[in-house]
Amino acid sequence: MKTATVKQLKDELKHNSTEELMHLCLRLSRFKKENKELLTYLLFEAHDEAGYIENVKQEIDLQFETINTDSYFYIKKSVRKILRLIKKYSRYSLKKETEVELLLYFCQKLKDFKPSIKRNVTLTNIYDRQIAAIKKIITGLHEDLQYDYTMALKELEE
C-alpha cells in the first residue's frame, strides 16, 4: 500500500464533516500510543506550555530516580531512554524554547547525578552532545531568549 502525501491527506480532509474528522481522530488514536499522546498534548496541554514543561520535568525526575546505579551500563541505557522521551515530548510541542528548557533540565540532572558521569566516557559524550545541541538551537531563537538561555548554559558549564 502506498502512503499518501501530506498534501493529498490535507486536500482529502477538507471534504470531510466535523463528525467524520472526529471519528478519524479517535480511530487514529487507537493504533499507536504516540498518536494518543500527541492528541492529548494538542487537546489538553498546548494552551499551557509552562504547565506542559513542568509535567515533563516531573517525568524526567521520576525517570532519574528509577535509574539502576549498579553499573554504568544500566545508567547509560536509562539516560538514553530519558533522552528519547525528551525528544519525543519536544516534537509534540514544536517549540524550540520548550526543547531548550527540557534539554537544559536534562543536562543539569545529568551533571548532578551520582555516581558522577565524569568517570564514564559515553555519558560524558552524551552530555557534551546535548550541550552542543542546545547551543545550536539557541542561535535560532529571539535575541532576548538567546541571552537568557546562554546565561543558563554558562551556569551549567561551570
Results as ranks from 00 to 15, higher is better:
residue 50 A to T: 04
residue 50 A to P: 01
residue 50 A to F: 04
residue 50 A to C: 00
residue 51 G to E: 07
residue 53 I to K: 02
residue 54 E to P: 00
residue 55 N to I: 04
residue 56 V to G: 03
residue 56 V to M: 09
residue 57 K to P: 00
residue 57 K to D: 07
residue 57 K to C: 05
residue 59 E to L: 13
residue 60 I to F: 04
residue 60 I to S: 05
residue 60 I to E: 06
residue 62 L to N: 09
residue 62 L to Q: 09
residue 63 Q to C: 01
residue 63 Q to A: 10
residue 64 F to Q: 00
residue 64 F to L: 01
residue 65 E to M: 14
residue 65 E to A: 14
residue 66 T to H: 15
residue 66 T to N: 10
residue 67 I to T: 10
residue 68 N to P: 12
residue 68 N to G: 11
residue 69 T to N: 12
residue 69 T to I: 15
residue 69 T to C: 14
residue 70 D to E: 10
residue 70 D to C: 03
residue 70 D to I: 02
residue 70 D to F: 09
residue 70 D to S: 09
residue 70 D to L: 09
residue 71 S to F: 09
residue 71 S to L: 05
residue 72 Y to A: 01
residue 73 F to A: 05
residue 74 Y to A: 06
residue 74 Y to V: 00
residue 74 Y to L: 07
residue 75 I to S: 11
residue 77 K to Q: 12
residue 77 K to R: 15
residue 77 K to G: 11
residue 78 S to F: 11
residue 78 S to A: 15
residue 78 S to Y: 11
residue 78 S to G: 12
residue 79 V to T: 06
residue 79 V to H: 03
residue 79 V to G: 02
residue 81 K to T: 06
residue 81 K to A: 08
residue 82 I to K: 09
residue 82 I to L: 09
residue 83 L to V: 05
residue 83 L to S: 10
residue 84 R to Y: 13
residue 85 L to Q: 04
residue 85 L to C: 01
residue 85 L to E: 06
residue 87 K to Y: 11
residue 88 K to F: 08
residue 89 Y to I: 00
residue 90 S to D: 02
residue 90 S to P: 05
residue 91 R to D: 13
residue 91 R to V: 09
residue 93 S to K: 01
residue 93 S to M: 03
residue 94 L to V: 00
residue 94 L to A: 08
residue 95 K to Q: 07
residue 96 K to S: 12
residue 96 K to T: 09
residue 96 K to Q: 09
residue 97 E to W: 02
residue 100 V to T: 13
residue 101 E to H: 03
residue 101 E to M: 02
residue 102 L to Q: 07
residue 102 L to V: 07
residue 103 L to P: 03
residue 103 L to N: 11
residue 104 L to C: 07
residue 104 L to M: 07
residue 105 Y to F: 15
residue 105 Y to S: 04
residue 106 F to I: 06
residue 106 F to W: 15
residue 107 C to S: 11
residue 107 C to A: 13
residue 107 C to R: 06
residue 108 Q to A: 02
residue 109 K to R: 14
residue 109 K to M: 11
residue 110 L to R: 15
residue 110 L to E: 08
residue 110 L to I: 08
residue 112 D to T: 12
residue 114 K to A: 13
residue 115 P to F: 13
residue 115 P to I: 11
residue 116 S to C: 07
residue 116 S to Q: 01
residue 117 I to V: 05
residue 118 K to E: 11
residue 119 R to C: 08
residue 119 R to Q: 11
residue 119 R to S: 14
residue 120 N to T: 00
residue 120 N to A: 04
residue 120 N to W: 02
residue 121 V to F: 15
residue 123 L to F: 13
residue 123 L to I: 12
residue 124 T to G: 13
residue 124 T to S: 14
residue 124 T to H: 15
residue 125 N to Y: 14
residue 126 I to V: 07
residue 126 I to G: 01
residue 126 I to L: 13
residue 126 I to N: 07
residue 127 Y to R: 05
residue 128 D to S: 01
residue 128 D to Y: 06
residue 129 R to E: 11
residue 129 R to P: 06
residue 130 Q to L: 05
residue 130 Q to N: 14
residue 130 Q to P: 00
residue 130 Q to G: 03
residue 130 Q to F: 06
residue 131 I to M: 07
residue 131 I to G: 01
residue 133 A to L: 08
residue 133 A to G: 01
residue 134 I to Q: 08
